[in-house]
Simulated assay, not measured.
Amino acid sequence: MAEVRNDPAQHRYEVLEDGAVAGFAEYMEVRGDRIVFTHTEVDPAFGGKGLGSVLVAGALEDARDRDLAIVPICPFVARYVHAHPEFVPFLDERIRKAFE
């Protein structure tokens, strides 16, 4: 089963499959109440398992639970939010309208 964890020292969330890092979603250093997602990547060896979606869902849920305004600069994260409108209310208010 896949696990998502935050690695604040490296400014990224990681998805682990059987204890191995299978992918990551990078973010800029959290400042104030915003988290800016910049890049998401899944190792091709773990491709086709939906781990990118598991990773982004876990990262967005954690950001929401920490009351951080989400800024999805990463195209994968932005597409995920478009497909999962339950996260739109948690976007930074300056970009929320683009997702509604």
Rank of each mutant, 00 (worst) to 15 (best):
D43N: 15
V4H: 13
R12N: 02
H82F: 13
E14C: 08
L60W: 04
V81L: 06
P8E: 07
A20I: 05
G47P: 09
V81K: 00
M28N: 06
H82G: 07
F76K: 12
D62W: 10
G23T: 00
V30E: 14
V81R: 01
G52C: 09
I35S: 05
T38A: 07
A59H: 13
A59N: 09
A98F: 14
E93G: 08
M28E: 15
P44I: 00
F37N: 03
E17Y: 08
D7W: 07
V77K: 01
A98I: 06
A45G: 09
F24H: 12
V36I: 14
E26C: 07
K97Y: 06
E14G: 06
A25E: 01
L55M: 11
V30N: 02
I35W: 08
F90P: 01
H82N: 06
D62P: 04
A69Q: 15
E86T: 08
M1W: 11
L55W: 01
F76Y: 15
V30W: 02
Y13N: 03
A22I: 02
M28G: 10
L16G: 00
N6L: 08
V30R: 02
P44V: 01
G52T: 01
K97M: 04
F99C: 03
M28I: 04
P72S: 10
V81D: 00
E93P: 01
F90I: 04
V77H: 08
F99I: 04
P75E: 10
E93W: 02
L60N: 12
F46S: 06
G23A: 12
G52Y: 01
A45Y: 08
A83K: 15
I70V: 08
D7S: 06
G32R: 12
D62E: 14
F46H: 15
E41I: 03
V15E: 00
H11Y: 07
H82Q: 14
D7P: 05
E100N: 14
Y13C: 11
L16Y: 15
R96H: 06
R94P: 01
P85W: 06
E41L: 12
V77C: 10
E17M: 08
D18E: 13
A2V: 05
F24L: 09
D33N: 15
F87G: 03
A63N: 06
G32P: 12
I35R: 14
A78S: 14
H39R: 13
R96C: 03
Q10E: 13
D33Y: 11
V36R: 15
V36Y: 08
V56D: 01
A69Y: 14
Y27E: 04
F87S: 02
E41M: 11
P75I: 04
A22Y: 00
A69N: 12
C74M: 13
F99H: 05
A25Q: 03
D65Y: 11
P75W: 10
I73V: 15
Y13E: 09
V88Y: 03
F87I: 09
A98Y: 13
H84F: 13
R79A: 15
E61N: 12
H11K: 05
A9F: 11
A9K: 14
D65K: 15
G50M: 07
Y13T: 02
E14K: 08
